[in-house]
Simulated scan of single mutants.
Amino acid sequence: MKFGKQYSKVTVFMAMLHGVIIGIAAVALIGFILMGTNGKQAEVKTKAGKDEIPISGPTGEDVKAPVSVPAPAGSIELFARQYGVFTSQESAALFVSENPLLAAAAVIKEGEQYFVWTAIGLSEAEIIDSDSEESFKKRFFVNTAACAAVGAGKLESVLSTNDITKIKTSTGEKGMETADEFEKNITAITTFTNDIRVIRAHLLSHYSLKKECIKFTF
């Protein structure tokens, strides 16, 4: 069976041209889609890459090893468990009163700042059992030379010992009213605690807040 001529050359040419145009358009569309996908992936990589800073602190590249600083002349090195620092004694005291875990805490003054400290030791190891997620260790130096003028000349030796007996028998200069006051302070503190770390904290609190004879170096 013979079929006759159904399409002209022009019709066939136009059909071929139409097919080519559709093919080019499809290739172009796929290219644009791939480019858009790669762009989004690159953007995500940039946001999650090396410029990201962990919430908990600086990146590992920024962390530096602590520098060992020698004690200033006439000072002793101590370590405190710190819970906060405030701009007024009232706000620090309020913070302590609202936290049952800080019943034995003391407020220490240095300049215009008020620190809330609990355990104070001669080494980091001495306060390691006081670790808390709400606190951190603070190294500092203290000079008590000026406290001799208020009858607390034995303050440095009290802060430097781990012998509770020596603390309870520490006195100032005989016959001085201020020395009697120092002895009374020791008696008052040791009446409610035998924890040497807490005793140190409250002595530093008294002689930094009321007598202002202690010099701190951080």
Rank of each mutant, 00 (worst) to 15 (best):
A119T: 01
I214R: 00
G31C: 06
L102P: 02
E212L: 12
E110C: 11
V63F: 02
V150Q: 10
Y83S: 02
I128D: 10
A201N: 05
G84W: 01
G31E: 04
Q6N: 14
A179I: 07
K64I: 13
T217G: 04
C147S: 14
I24L: 04
V96K: 15
E183N: 12
K109W: 05
G31P: 08
K50I: 12
A73C: 03
I127R: 02
I196Q: 03
L204Y: 04
R139H: 13
E90D: 15
T87D: 15
A104G: 07
C213F: 02
A28H: 09
V142Q: 10
V10Y: 13
S157N: 15
S208I: 06
E173I: 00
S91E: 14
K137I: 13
T187M: 08
A201H: 00
I30H: 08
V10P: 01
M176W: 15
L29G: 13
A152S: 12
K47E: 02
A26M: 04
T87W: 11
I21M: 10
V63W: 05
I164F: 11
E61T: 06
F136Y: 12
K215Y: 12
V158M: 07
A179V: 06
I33M: 13
K215G: 14
I21E: 01
G151F: 01
P100H: 07
R139E: 12
Y7P: 02
S123A: 09
A103Y: 09
F218R: 11
I127F: 05
K137R: 10
I108M: 03
P70D: 08
K50G: 08
N194D: 15
G121N: 09
S97P: 09
F86D: 09
V20S: 10
V63S: 09
K9Y: 09
G4R: 12
